[in-house]
Design a binder for these strands. Sequence first.
DNA 1: CTAGGGTTAG
Length: 606
Amino acid sequence: MEVSNQMLHRPVSILQGVSFVCGNASFWEMPRSQCVSFCFEIVYDDDGFEICVGNVFDEMPQRTSNSGDEDVKAETCIMPFGIDSVRRVFEVMPRKDVVSYNTIIAGYAQSGMYEDALRMVREMGTTDLKPDSFTLSSVLPIFSEYVDVIKGKEIHGYVIRKGIDSDVYIGSSLVDMYAKSARIEDSERVFSRLYCRDGISWNSLVAGYVQNGRYNEALRLFRQMVTAKVKPGAVAFSSVIPACAHLATLHLGKQLHGYVLRGGFGSNIFIASALVDMYSKCGNIKAARKIFDRMNVLDEVSWTAIIMGHALHGHGHEAVSLFEEMKRQGVKPNQVAFVAVLTACSHVGLVDEAWGYFNSMTKVYGLNQELEHYAAVADLLGRAGKLEEAYNFISKMCVEPTGSVWSTLLSSCSVHKNLELAEKVAEKIFTVDSENMGAYVLMCNMYASNGRWKEMAKLRLRMRKKGLRKKPACSWIEMKNKTHGFVSGDRSHPSMDKINEFLKAVMEQMEKEGYVADTSGVLHDVDEEHKRELLFGHSERLAVAFGIINTEPGTTIRVTKNIRICTDCHVAIKFISKITEREIIVRDNSRFHHFNRGNCSCGDYW
DNA sequence: CTAGGGTTAG
């Protein structure tokens, strides 16, 4: 499992000077008695204070409840004075005990002052006070955030030795720590050993699955949690809903939405933003917009979700005007919001606007342009046919271009049929990423459409030598709460005869209305007739046909495809939408195509 | 005195 960008971008300098010394790796496998040999030491500071009874937060006001939501911590736990004043009080306390240390450590940790929190843990050691489950529950999340699994494991070793590893708080922190370090198997093991699990421990693992891209497992565990009669809270919903967004499983997303409303969490901004994202990624931008319009409070995340939604659905102008509206309302766009608005520009070809936004990042908002922003602009230039400009832009990037940045340009070269530049770009890709499947496939396609069979064969040989195999194209459609998958050319679906019959009938009508098969994208060196047959078996076409056959007239068809929609299928589905009078929505790997009355929302710009 | 959450994205 890959570590996400978010993890890699976290600084680690904060951990310097802190040392939880303990043995190495595999204490998992050891019987408990042997774990004792793992010691836990703190590097002590020289100064120390006497132990004191009392609590520096004694003066704190009680938390007030907050509109039925659970997330009271951030909003309503207002300190009467800043953490600095708390520290001053703490420092003059004549005697300090574990509780007072825990309190100040938690205070620092919750205020993001991690160095101070860890310094206090060290100081605590100088006074003979031993960190307990409270201390460590405050400290562990620091190592989750900074993805330091070594430090996290040291603490794990220590808590096993102290016999507090089954503490729910510690357990949840450990589950989270391992998940954020991309070691979800270890999260599972910690979780499985917790004999007392509350909603938070369940959700730590659910969220862990989502963070590691294991969406199906996240949903499975969420269901298990509900079955175990643990009621999901607000946080649990905002953790699982993104799993539906990623999987594009509208029916599950809808069920969760229903659950959210019944639970009274509908106005929670975290959940509402997740729902906006989920509906738009599942192809229902109207529902997404409805939820967004009903939200009372909007932050940069909710704005970004709806802007990205419109961008993915090809409503570039709407996305741009929402971005302007966000700024007008005084919400400052962050880096992600810029990714969204640049994506919007790229999908509709707003070149000048995009440049304006790109430059305003540093000049107006003091934000650095990161790889994603460069990628979006490169994508925009490429789509707009400014291939050379895009090439130069990428070559001069301040960030080292990755294979994926070059890949967007390569697909633009393919759209604009510039084989010469494509070859140049492909070589760039292969130098950074010699196993980039997409690049091999695209180049093969381009050679094929130019009749350059020799070059194609050469490239295929190169692929074979590397042991690379083409990822099969597949499409899927939800039908009565079941997902039906289709693989290109695969005839094993039980309804295949009906599908073919349908496609044949539609095809006759299509040809009458002027459809001509575009066989240029067919990879194989076979005759025209055979090429047309191959197009006939494309997965998106099968899924659309299956959807139409099995639904009432007028029902919207939603299909998801794992790779870019094929040019010929794009034309064909336009015809199909007109002939069958259906709205057909196809999500490919980068956007949505809304086919209606013979047109597509992308305006053929994709 | 302690633990889990939403937006990028190939």
